[in-house]
Design a protein around this nucleic acid. Sequence first.
DNA 1: TAGTGGTCTAGACCACTCC
DNA 2: GAGTGGTCTAGACCACTAG
Lengths: 245, 245
Amino acid sequence: MPRAPRDRTQHERILRDLKDRIVSGAWPPGFQLPFELKLAEDYGVSRMTMNKVLSQLTREGFLVRRRKLGTFVATPQAQSAVLEITDIESEVRALGLDYGFALHERAIRPPSESERREAGIAAAEPGEVLFLRGVHFAGRAPFCLETRIISLEAAPDAREQDFSREAPGRWLLERIPWTSAEHRIRAVNAVGATAKLLGLDPGEACLEVLRRTEIAGQWVTLVRQSYPGSKHQLLAQFTPRADAG
Amino acid sequence: MPRAPRDRTQHERILRDLKDRIVSGAWPPGFQLPFELKLAEDYGVSRMTMNKVLSQLTREGFLVRRRKLGTFVATPQAQSAVLEITDIESEVRALGLDYGFALHERAIRPPSESERREAGIAAAEPGEVLFLRGVHFAGRAPFCLETRIISLEAAPDAREQDFSREAPGRWLLERIPWTSAEHRIRAVNAVGATAKLLGLDPGEACLEVLRRTEIAGQWVTLVRQSYPGSKHQLLAQFTPRADAG
DNA sequence: TAGTGGTCTAGACCACTCC
DNA sequence: GAGTGGTCTAGACCACTAG
């Protein structure tokens, strides 16, 4: 056939076709596909186009390719979920609620011992950090308690910034290009100030997200966000696998 | 220059170079790149190779491309973390601990109302599900309480399977190719059977992961995993953005 | 209408790996 | 050595969109 009838592009149509065969089980794990050149002929495209499709399916984890041996349907192993975490203001507004932020503490000081450890700051580094603590509101209800330190070396402009109304997360997001970060997610019992600021009874379960962001190996910010456990849940959407990048 | 000296491939070398410029801030958000053809000439490659690089950076969220206008450095917005979730046995063994699984309940029955709702089973569907509840052990300590239902339509072999020793997660993972799934992560206070099976005092915080897996639109399994909050945390590694797939 | 990105081709050379 | 995937080229046409 010379050309596809109603598909957007050639490789899209082939991609869909191959995925269908794999997820339907018609091509089970371990199945050997025809060789690249043969597939290209079968689908009536050039080898380059076929290669594009097969490369993408390999990146996505559907296929395994080995020189001289051929192309095989992969055995599913690791599952990678993509956890989308927008800034909290967007999250609250997406719920159709008014958003607000109230700053409770602000200080410029050297990082504490535990902060050094968690942010990965070398003991030799003499710099100061901007410490912030505040509450995000959804409507009139506390939505999230945020405790954060910001590297004044990575973000010197933060020193002059007034975060009494604007949450630091979005401010940073718009200015600092981050390259990597790390999440730790755990459940804790709310105690003391955390419980009080979130309007919880002591002992209620909280979802705690600890995020460390860095740019090119240097830490930018370390933030701990506590959500009332009963009122919040993180959503993660699965994809077959992350690409190698 | 006719050819690169010591880089694996042309597009790898260009990819690295462009990423460096973006994350270093030399090309800030909003910066307009030279046109594709110009870049290809500058780097001494064909337009196809250059396009491959620019397409990948666009998929990864570093760039935004618009016909007629040009190519621009993207403003970072949504952060997507890749949450790697291996099966629990691997997780436990990675900690250097012995792994064990103990099945507490097993039943074949129609899904309950709430299970229907959470798994997305149409009321019309008459099928039965395999219900399982068991505890994963790390050494002698309870590591995770798992409550699961499996679609006997999607996985008919599960009916004959004895899960008294082997956890159903890995069994499924090796047999059923999944196409998508969804996570809900929240914190709850342990009560009743959950607390007892995990060896917790009532009221202690638990991390609860609810996962729904499907293949080609049909649900396969719905599982609720409860971890003692104080002893477990999820780790998520950041990447700049997920590709569109 | 003109210029950009989006896609595709036919052919080529190389690298790896099994035989 | 032979056959596979990995990469690259030079050129082409198309689709979208700003002006």
